[in-house]
Design a protein around this nucleic acid. Structure first.
Lengths: 117, 117
DNA sequence: TAAACATATGAATATATATTCATATGTTTC
DNA sequence: GAAACATATGAATATATATTCATATGTTTA
């Protein structure tokens, strides 16, 4: 009659109850996972690193990342949708830059972890 | 004769050269993307949040995350391989806990970004 | 040592997503 | 307004990966 589907006799009920209460809503968890998904691809990570330095147009990025304009453009769309980059147009050229101070910090923390392994 | 495959006349050569010099090696970028990949799944994010509170056994985690023991175990393997969690055995029960201080910081920075949108 | 139990794992399936290719859109210049 | 150019995008393909199911492994207890 317990509401856990997990037939398990060593379950620490008090602990589980306490931890459950502190868990963020599923929506928050989902959004967090979605955010980190953006950082979870080499191409996008390269784009982010490049933009950490300065504003760049699409063909600059393609040259730096050594990938096709199309692939870059698709990835920039994702970065745009998740509000990690902003852009401005100058004629037919589009300049992208980072749109959030947290990005640098997240990358830095990740880098610290990597460097300590 | 340029070494860029990107037929693009507005390329900012000086800028591109400068940024290229500051880019981390591909290996670092790859490792970073792999790290963030671990955070990029709702189930793993829930496990991480649960373990932020305290050490838990597999069936506790399954109960908190409301998923099967098998799914949790598969995800814990990934968290183990990437050195984000450690474990200790007590008889047939296995207790998992976070293995790195950066994890909390990375999640916190991500959360700050989410909360500001 | 056999049964009960906690956890781990291999294989299969389903789903997500990165890249490529072709082409569309929008801007500038002649 | 036509050609050249920078960027965007839809469709298709290929690859990665999360979950499920069945079962294996290892530990405790009767």
């Amino acid at each position: 009659m317990e509401d856990n589907l997990f037939e398990c006799t060593v379950l620490h009920e008090e602990t589980v109850k306490k931890v459950k209460e502190t868990m963020p809503e599923d929506g928050i968890i989902y959004d967090l996972a979605e955010l980190f998904k953006v950082f979870a691809d080499s191409t996008r990570m390269k784009i982010i690193y490049a933009l950490l330095k300065e504003e760049l147009c699409v063909c600059d990025i393609a040259s730096i990342v050594q990938t096709t304009q199309s692939a870059i453009s698709h990835q920039l769309r994702i970065l745009k949708q998740t509000k990690l980059v902003k852009y401005r147009k100058e004629g037919k050229v589009v300049y992208y830059s980072l749109d959030d101070d947290h990005i640098a910090e997240i990358v830095k923390k990740g880098r610290e972890h990597i460097d300590e392994l």
